[in-house]
Design a protein around this nucleic acid. Structure first.
Lengths: 190, 190
DNA sequence: ATTAAGAAAGGACAATTGTCCCAATATGTC
DNA sequence: GACATATTGGGACAATTGTCCTTTCTTAAT
């Protein structure tokens, strides 16, 4: 649920210090609650989280938000739109104070074509997203809220401190009411 | 729900005829109902569907199968495991007569490193999987079975002829009983 | 201190979905 | 035809989840 990729982060930070790539990668800071990228907007840059936590979510015609993932250090967004050549399909919002690295699409594509290791880490990053999504959604579909919540708690013990209840519910695709019920049932079963 | 990628298929077929890549890509035929790749097994090859339809699914501890996607011509599987360096996380089974191209992981990685266009199409393919999954699961979580079914029918008019009811249910993550109810409600509303 | 605003928790009922089971309809075999 | 075997569809009830609304607590502002 909270994705990280320190290997990729390391590479980006090395590139940033490399004079050959002067100015390619810029750093930016945001307060909590800021929308970095809107759904259905034109995407011109790729971002990587340096520090903090962002949520990646889609808003449906029903008005419901569905959270795809929480992106922590080393996670990238805005890259899929380069390949699919469409507007953004999800929104990105900070859920804590966040610092990001930014690269233009043009710069990003050049890195992909010229920098072998960068290219490989990008392939790995995308493959990791595919795999993680597959496993998560399969599990979520096949289990009830209580079991899904238990799984999240096993991944992150202090989940209630990291993520607001509402976001937890939107990640699991259920209402807050139902999430509360699941929490109570877990308490009782201790 | 039925994924295709003719651009990638074209490239593979061209490579197959190219004497430089003699023997790299082999062709194989399967009857309907054959398991090509088992869950939690070691993966040594990458496959691309040439003709026919396969389903990609995970089996959960509850005994439930959850279908990720149906792969048609040009879709690849067995590639994610190269990057994640783990056993297969889903199973692949033919749902019609199917012909496949097969490449060893070693051959695949070499193509990735040496063939620019191949590399780019691989990035595109992975990005497409990420995007498609995101949109599908968000929609499915945010709507009831009836609406989800309507969406599938709008994608593929003749869905009931292509996919068995049980597979449809497993794709939507619901029981056959519930799928039948949704079908009836749709009939009534005509 | 008082008030307003907003978050958090849960009661009550409705809607949806799952589970279990049975009847109807093929399908193929002898 | 008679029989076994699937396959399909749906009834009845249980479990789960959603919707709506109220209450309780904070928190913040004046």
């Amino acid at each position: 649920m909270i994705r990280i990729n320190y290997e990729f982060l390391d590479l980006i930070e090395n590139l940033r210090e490399n004079p050959d790539y002067q100015g390619l990668i810029t750093a930016h800071n945001f307060k909590s609650g800021r929308v970095i990228l809107d759904q259905n907007s034109k995407v011109n840059n790729v971002y990587m989280v340096k520090e903090g936590l962002t949520k990646c979510y889609l808003t449906e015609d029903t008005g419901k938000d569905f959270i795809q993932e929480f992106f922590g250090p080393g996670e990238i967004f805005g890259e899929v739109e380069i390949f699919s050549e469409t507007y953004s399909f999800c929104a990105i919002e900070t859920v804590s104070q966040v610092s990001l690295y930014k690269i233009t699409h043009k710069g990003f594509v050049e890195l992909l074509k010229k920098h072998k290791e960068f290219n490989w880490l990008m392939l790995k990053s995308l493959a990791s997203k595919v795999k993680y999504k597959a496993i998560r959604h399969s599990f979520n579909q096949s289990h009830n809220t209580e079991t899904n919540l238990m799984r999240l708690k096993s991944e992150h013990e202090n989940i209630y401190n990291l993520i607001p209840k509402k976001d937890l519910a939107n990640y699991l695709g259920v209402t807050e009411r139902n999430l509360n019920r699941a929490i109570n049932r877990l308490k009782e079963s201790v």
